[in-house]
């Protein structure tokens, strides 16, 4: 194919089609670039910065940066791992992440990312912010203590559910997810089966009455690190 793009990630040649981001091309080639706000069925957001790679020596978000011919991408280097560890650390201390009783534990992408990065404990001080909970909806609740502001719910509601439910409000440390209603989630047209609910990578938006249904040891990330599915594509393709 004449319009095929070739570039390298950590010295491995990757083929991309024009219009693909670095992250999409890496996924297709079975190379895992860690990410939290990126989601295969949603438009790129570029907010969490966990997918930061070096492109020709400059830090870029792999989920928004287009693949280009001949670029040299550094992904799984000590430097990039340190950057990601620092970002994940900050996400933990900025919220109130009580994994020990969280329904999402074992299936949580933030937790799984920390496991994959080998984080035993964050290196920063915990902020213990005060964040409100919204349990007004009969099927779904929002626990903002666990929100990492990835914006997946905002995008999934708009792009997949065709509903206007979530939006960011505030700036900086005050930024948070708000719902499109005067008195909370129950007044929106959100349904429990909506993609906006299942798209949440953490335990911030959860369906009620289905928690803890999978036993410890059989949950998504109990045995396999996050990203193993993408890396399995690479080994099965014999690349």
């Amino acid at each position: 194919m004449s319009d095929e793009i070739k570039f390298s990630i950590d010295g491995v040649e990757i083929k991309a089609i024009p219009g693909q981001t670095i992250l999409q091309a890496a996924d297709a080639a079975g190379v895992y670039i860690p990410r939290l706000c990126a989601h295969r069925q949603l438009s790129p957001h570029g907010s969490c910065r966990v997918c930061t790679v070096k492109v020709n020596g400059r830090p870029q978000a792999a989920c928004t940066q287009p693949a280009a011919p001949g670029i040299i991408v550094e992904n799984n280097t000590d430097e990039m791992k340190a950057v990601r560890t620092s970002i994940v650390d900050m996400l933990f201390v900025e919220g109130n992440h009580f994994c020990m009783f969280c329904e999402k534990s074992g299936n949580c992408e933030l937790q799984a990312m920390a496991y994959r990065l080998g984080i035993a404990a964050p290196q920063h001080e915990y902020l213990f912010p005060s964040r409100p909970l919204d349990a007004s909806h009969p099927e779904v609740f929002i626990d903002r203590n666990r929100c990492i502001l990835c914006g997946r719910c905002v995008r999934a509601a708009k792009e997949l559910d065709n509903k206007n439910v979530f939006q960011f409000v505030g700036r900086g440390i005050h930024k948070h997810i708000a719902v499109n209603a005067e008195h909370g989630l129950s007044e929106t047209d959100l349904a429990g089966v909506d993609r906006a609910v299942s798209a949440c990578p953490v335990g911030a938006i959860l369906r009620k009455r289905v928690g803890y249904s999978i036993p410890v040891g059989e949950r998504l990330y109990d045995k396999q690190p996050i990203g193993s599915d993408i890396e399995a594509d690479r080994s099965s393709a014999g690349k």
């Binding site: 020990m100 969280c102 534990s105 937790q111 496991y115 080998g118 984080i119």
Partner: peptide, 11 residues
């Protein structure tokens, strides 16, 4: 002290 993946758990 290098804990393997299976021994880093927060729950």
């Amino acid at each position: 002290l290098d804990l393997p993946y299976s021994l880093i758990k927060y729950d």
